[in-house]
Write a protein that binds this DNA or RNA. Structure first.
Lengths: 143, 143
DNA sequence: AAAATAAAAGTATTTAAATACTTTTATTTT
DNA sequence: AAAATAAAAGTATTTAAATACTTTTATTTT
């Protein structure tokens, strides 16, 4: 459902959230290394997130990326919408470009339940919700 | 979650199921046209399905593809496993190559619910279950 | 037996996502 | 002011999935 870039974005933002308390700004290289992703992908993707207001950045020496107190409480759906767009949660399970209740694919009703459950989770989980288990060693950002 | 080839496979098998009663064998071209997909993709994919025993084929004049009475009652998960493999239902929501309850990603538990719901649907819905609404004009194979 | 038809198999190309690389711009440090 | 650092932006290449093309094999019809 989510592109690889989007999954990388979620991990990166959670990483930044884990540094929020310390006030530390993380570089592209540092983030990429920690989440085991390509620097180039991470760099390009972080720019998109900054542009969409999901995270912040500072150029120059001691520059880097960080999240504000408000941003740490945003739901992860804002990351998803910034990278993959809003249509992620309206995609047809069988690849139709137009699938609706008036012209449905054969699994439309069943798939809608799955998709809506996923969307609900993405709306309800904040960056901080996912960051806490990482900070306490119960979840990881690589594997 | 499913590759485009896999979604095409599901539509193609449902199409063949819709022809089951008439005993009609469908050609690659006919199937591709009806589900609005590339002949080449459909041709290659149908071979895989035949090889995996999901559908049957006959070469030569009056040849084509068809499903047996037994195959029409198989769950669509057999199509999915033939094309995308069994690991479709074990993929990590954040792209980890190894994500488990002992080394989970931050959304592991929540995503597992979504993934398991999707798998459950794929195990319970048979080809025939999805074919019936298509035959009665309540669902479509293109759009 | 030969011709026609159509799947099966093999090989090649395109496409879009992911990744790579270079230059510009902004900021801090000296 | 100059140098160093690092993000921002622009451009290019690679990769894997999807699609395209050709040849072989199997089957039916004549």
């Amino acid at each position: 459902m989510l592109s690889l870039t989007c999954k990388t974005a979620i991990k990166a933002v959670i990483y930044l959230a884990s540094k929020h308390q310390s006030g530390h700004k993380a570089s592209i290289k540092e983030i990429a290394e920690f989440i085991d992703a390509s620097e180039h992908t991470v760099g390009k993707m972080l720019q998109t997130l900054v542009r969409e207001g999901v995270i912040n950045s500072v150029k120059g020496p001691n520059g880097g990326f960080y999240v504000s107190g408000k941003q740490i409480n945003q739901p992860i759906i804002s990351i998803i919408e910034a990278v993959d767009g809003k249509e992620v949660f309206r995609q047809c399970g069988l690849g139709f470009s137009k699938c609706s209740s008036s012209h449905p694919c054969p699994i439309h009703d069943d798939y809608k339940v799955v998709r809506d459950l996923f969307e609900k989770m993405c709306r309800e989980k904040s960056v901080n919700d996912l960051c806490e288990p990482v900070n306490s060693g119960l979840a990881y950002l690589f594997g």
